[in-house]
Amino acid sequence: MAFRITELTAEHAEQVLAVYQSGIDEGNATFETCAPSWAAFDAGRLPGHRLVALDEDGTVLGWAAVAAVSARSVYAGVVEHSVYVHPRARGRGVGSALLAELVRSTEAAGIWTVQSGIFPENTASLALHERAGFRVVGVRSRVGRHHGVWRDVVLVERRSPVVE
């Protein structure tokens, strides 16, 4: 499957939110229970680090984006990321390509740490992140309830070898 990575814009909103909702519906991607409105999605992610993978006809195969972890200036180089791949596009390198481009864009902007929290049951995401150079920092046990069940979250991070 041929695809290209490009900037995620409002033109992709409907498809991006549908891919997000697919991940939510599977139950092991996030504590969220429904995709936000485009306005909320847009307001919560940093510009310059929003990516989509598009197939040849412009269909969104996946997306990646980052959010600031804190408003404090000392954490300006630390972001939390999300990466979601449409179920029909999995296993084709879409997630790897999105993460690689996300690392390039964040490093170019002086961001030194990209982190995320992943449910331990999401073994595909954990493997993807390991291949992309992320390391497990630890596990936050019973950090939140999801559909009435306490869930753990594996904290992963990638420290830039380029940005100091």
Rank of each mutant, 00 (worst) to 15 (best):
M1L: 14
A2P: 00
A2T: 01
I5T: 15
T6N: 09
E7Q: 15
L8H: 00
T9V: 06
T9N: 11
H12C: 14
H12I: 15
A13Q: 07
E14H: 14
V16M: 15
L17R: 07
L17V: 13
V19A: 14
G23L: 14
I24A: 15
F31S: 08
E32N: 15
E32W: 06
E32A: 07
C34W: 14
S37C: 10
W38N: 03
R45E: 02
P47G: 06
P47F: 01
R50Q: 12
R50L: 04
L51H: 05
V52K: 00
L54C: 01
L54G: 01
D55H: 07
D57K: 04
G58K: 10
G58E: 10
G58S: 05
G58Y: 11
T59A: 09
L61M: 01
A64R: 02
A65V: 14
V66L: 10
A68N: 13
V69I: 04
S70W: 05
Y75W: 08
A76M: 10
Y84V: 02
P87I: 10
R90G: 14
R90N: 15
G91N: 04
R92T: 08
V94N: 07
S96R: 07
R104K: 12
A108R: 02
A109P: 02
A109Y: 04
G110L: 03
I111G: 00
T113C: 05
V114I: 12
Q115G: 01
S116T: 11
I118H: 02
F119G: 00
E121G: 15
N122M: 00
T123R: 03
L126Y: 02
L126F: 00
L126E: 03
E130K: 13
G133M: 07
G138L: 04
V139G: 10
R140H: 07
R140K: 06
R140E: 05
S141K: 13
G144Q: 04
G144I: 06
H146N: 06
H147A: 13
H147I: 11
H147C: 11
V153R: 02
V156P: 10
V156A: 07
E157M: 12
P161V: 15
P161W: 12
V162S: 08
E164C: 11
E164R: 11
